[in-house]
């Protein structure tokens, strides 16, 4: 763990998932996943394709109901009382969740209304500026490059100032500058007492950001790796299943 403000250490976990199971018809995508996410931390979900990373992120984002298990976000039972838990989470999945025929501003405005964001127009302008997309804010999303769309998608996820940010391969489509900017934004985010969970294929990128990594394999957590141990050979060992569930 890197140095954090002392207020981060004593806080209760932001998210507690217990025994999450998710079936998709014939397949078991998640087979009893339990994890805690603390305030101020950035957790990376690693694992080979089909390990269940995306499914887990979707369950944590309340987009997908688990077949079994419990999920608490900010002390709220996210399965029973999703309406109260949802404002605490912001998520970007594989897709941008953006309406292609609306402008960036219109997209943000629409989602802002759903989340009941106060002072919506000001907040939208701020987010557009911070995400460096103010210049193209009034062009239909369809006409924006993949990287630009990704930035709008991120802006959409943080619009309502959630406590927990869930990002499924957020570096996709971003160039180096944009990746650095995203990394800075995430650091700033966790410094303010919030948490980030992200999935990634790219170890380099993960090492720069994450305080720890959780390795998934066939729907189960097979390893917890601390930041200091985030080395290619250790991660590769965890991927192949050779590493037991040690720290």
């Amino acid at each position: 763990m890197t140095e954090r403000p002392s207020s981060c250490i004593i806080q209760p976990p932001l998210l507690v998932a217990t025994g999450i199971v998710r079936r998709f018809g014939r397949t078991l995508a998640l087979r009893g996943v339990s994890l805690n996410i603390m305030p101020c931390e950035c957790v990376a979900l690693l694992g080979p394709n089909g390990a269940g990373k995306t499914t887990l992120v979707r369950v944590l984002a309340t987009a997908l109901q688990p077949s079994a298990g419990a999920l608490t976000i900010g002390g709220v039972d996210a399965l029973r009382d999703a309406a109260r838990a949802r404002p605490l989470v912001g998520a970007v999945g594989h897709e941008t969740h953006l309406y292609q025929d609306l402008t960036a501003r219109e997209n943000l405005r629409f989602y802002g209304r759903l989340y009941g964001v106060r002072g919506l127009e000001d907040r939208v302008s701020t987010v557009l500026k911070e995400s460096d997309i103010a210049a193209v804010a009034d062009r239909p999303v369809r006409t924006l490059s993949r990287g630009m769309q990704q930035r709008v998608a991120l802006g959409r996820a943080i619009l309502h100032e959630p406590m927990l940010l869930l990002l499924d391969e957020p570096e996709t489509g971003l160039d180096d500058t944009a990746q650095r900017r995203l990394a800075r934004m995430l650091e700033d985010w966790t410094d303010r007492g919030r948490a980030v969970v992200l999935t990634s294929h790219r170890l380099e990128w993960t090492r720069r950001l994450a305080d720890r990594a959780i390795v998934l394999r066939e729907g189960q957590i097979v390893a917890h790796i601390d930041r200091s141990d985030l080395e290619p050979d250790i991660v590769a060992a965890a991927y192949s299943g050779a590493l037991s569930s040690a720290g």
Partner: peptide
């Protein structure tokens, strides 16, 4: 369903 907007709606606190 085209760009995952339905999922965006479902993740929002939308009744």
């Amino acid at each position: 369903r085209d760009h995952g907007t339905l999922e965006g709606l479902l993740m929002a606190p939308l009744d």
